[in-house]
């Protein structure tokens, strides 16, 4: 049983490599069906949603970015046959499943408030001043359930209502601003922009100054790295590639 399963997994993995390297479809043994804008497509199993859409013939010029789960551009909403729950994902990070009904959300229609944090008092009401709709939160928790980063979004929204900059900053730290929370919110809150205001305020007023940053800024301002910059800027493309690869190889992994 266990062995059979392993074989199957290997076959699926093979299917994945054949799909991504353009090998003949006949060699692919495992297929799934997905639905894009309601239309059914047959795609190899074991692709990410993004790869599956591309396999199906879609070409992205929006809803795609880093392809590595960091940029938040490939927000996706879907349902799977047999489950009423609406789900969300980053298309580049989530595997396509059989029976997925997919739609890409390239942008959340959210207005970002304009402010200069240097002119704002470190007072919790700043949240309501720029995002008064925070007061409409009904604690339904839809935002938290929606977040592809698994953040406790409702908790940081609540912290914002209470004017707690630290909690907003810490609890929203891994936000990639994909906007899915704002799309689903019944109170029409723009969670991720409010969180950014919180992180900025906390960074400016809540945290003590980081001595290493101060030192490095001084060094930059005093021209310490000018020579290095000039050198890099004068390199030819192939030389630059070499330097880049060398630097990547020597880079500290943390």
């Amino acid at each position: 049983m266990e062995e059979k399963r392993r074989d199957l997994m290997e076959e699926i993995a093979e299917a994945n490599s054949s799909a991504s390297s353009g090998i003949d479809d006949k060699k692919i043994k495992h297929w799934i069906h997905i639905y894009v804008l309601g239309k059914q497509y047959k795609v190899p199993a074991s692709l990410t949603i993004m790869q599956a859409l591309e396999y199906a013939g879609y070409r992205f010029n929006k809803s795609v970015g880093c392809r590595a789960g960091f940029c938040g551009a490939c927000s996706t909403m879907y349902r799977v046959e047999g489950d009423y729950k609406i789900k969300t994902a980053l298309a580049c990070q989530t595997m396509a499943e059989d029976g997925m009904y997919l739609v890409q959300i390239p942008f959340s229609p959210a207005v970002k408030a304009k402010y200069d944090i240097n002119n704002e008092p470190y007072d919790g009401n700043v949240f309501l001043k720029y995002y008064p709709e925070l007061a409409r939160c009904v604690s339904c928790n839809t935002c938290t359930k929606t977040c592809p980063q698994d953040l406790q979004v409702m908790d940081y929204v609540q912290a914002a209502i209470k004017g707690d900059f630290q909690k907003v900053a810490e609890w929203s730290f891994d936000c990639i601003q994909c906007g899915l929370c704002a799309v689903r919110c019944p109170a029409e809150i723009v969670q991720y922009h409010a969180a950014q205001l919180g992180r900025r305020m906390y960074g400016k007023y809540g945290l003590s100054e980081e001595p290493n940053i101060v030192k490095r800024v001084e060094e930059i301002m005093s021209g310490k790295f000018e020579e290095e910059f000039k050198k890099v800027m004068s390199l030819q493309k192939d030389e630059l590639e070499k330097v880049y690869v060398k630097q990547q190889n020597e880079r500290e992994i943390y």
């Binding site: 008092p121 700043v126 309501l128 001043k129 008064p132 007061a135 409409r136």
Partner: peptide, 22 residues
Amino acid sequence: IDAISPEEMMELPQIALVAACR
């Protein structure tokens, strides 16, 4: 609620706005 002046928004207690929104 977008038309409330920034000065008033800084002064209002949270519950006033929450209640008005509801």
